[in-house]
Amino acid sequence: MIPASFDYAVARDVGHAIQLLGTSGGEGKVLAGGQSLIPLMKFRLAQPALLIDINRVAGLSAIKENGDLRIGALVRENDLEANPIVRQRYPILVETAAVIADPLVRNLATIGGNLAHADPANDHPATMLAVRASVVAQGPKGERMIPIDELFVDTFTTSLAPDEILTQIRIPKPAPRSGGTYLKLERKVGDFAIAGVAVMIVLDASGKVASAGIGLTNAGPTAIRAGRAEDVLTDQMPDDKTIAEAASRAAAAAEPVSDLRGPAAYKKDVFRVLTRRAIVKAIARAKGGA
């Protein structure tokens, strides 16, 4: 399959990329890893007039811990998974990156693209909801921070302006007694999730849940936060009954559609099961376990 013709420009830096986006009159697309965009172009579901290649822009591929964790938008999934800081302190990110598509795709696919593409089937959005991340958007007027809850507007639609580029992801430093995990059920490597659940739990000194973050993959038009499930856990001792109740609330929040991955009722129950397992695992990690 051959994509429609397009103009191609290599951005020298972020400013240049923003300028190119601005002059394209809304017809420009940013090319990062290309692992979602190029397939869409081959199907001609996307026919951008101008492709702005940011792969040669320096400074977008760094991962550094600076109070919070700052991940450049151009970091490849395999590099995220292999990063020593991430492996040591952010297992939820390792688990998320490791189940995206397949290892070949992950050599090119980027974390920024996974978020900016805003596919509800993508895996990072749910995890970023759970960890309460923010993204940095850079545009002609400078930089602004977008809390993750304000990023996803609809399927394939974010709150980024047409001339803004997502340049960095910021993740709060893990609190003491915190733990997180991402669980995904997929038919096979490379498939999108039947259901995916990200959970981040912070315990207080008494063992009660100080805060909970729960994000769901493929549960609606965007990745969603299971807010009522979080509320059920917050300020409570996480006993079996409370965890089961939170899992039921997460399943109730999920609105999966019936497709070749299964009927909606089945998927809702998968959300319940995965949420329960993820909460248990996150709590074990918060208590210092693996």
Binding site: D7, V10, L20
Partner: peptide
């Protein structure tokens, strides 16, 4: 080109 649009 150094600026504006790209090339086919």
């Amino acid at each position: 080109p150094a600026t504006t649009t790209g090339t086919r």
